[in-house]
């Protein structure tokens, strides 16, 4: 949660309720799974699965495409022709 705050320059303060729901969704989709090495610690830790890694890859590709297309349109490198 602190990491999210630092990464976003204080813009996103992740709520604990929201995070709990997100973790459960990720578990349900099998994108992450519980990681049990620290049995002395009560703190739960999770590790990303192969399925999760694939999803992250695809999502990053999608976001990159989105960003590139946005730059093309807003940056005016190519003028999008209006066709009716």
């Amino acid at each position: 949660m602190q990491n999210v705050s630092v990464l976003s320059g204080g813009r996103v303060e992740l709520g604990a309720g929201t995070l709990y729901g997100a973790i459960n969704t990720l578990l349900k989709k099998r994108w992450i799974m519980p990681w049990e090495t620290n049995k002395s610690s009560r703190k739960k830790e999770y590790v990303i699965t192969d399925l999760g890694k694939g999803t992250v890859d695809r999502e990053m590709k999608r976001l990159t495409e989105l960003l590139e297309n946005s730059k093309k349109i807003v940056g005016g490198e190519t003028h999008a022709e209006k066709s009716v």
């Binding site: 996103v12 303060e13 992740l14 709520g15 604990a16 309720g17 929201t18 729901g21």
Partner: peptide
């Protein structure tokens, strides 16, 4: 420890 909000996105706020 700073501001206290349980929900930080619109979806979880809607659910609640």
């Amino acid at each position: 420890e700073g501001p206290f909000n349980l929900f930080s996105d619109i979806d979880s706020r809607i659910q609640h």
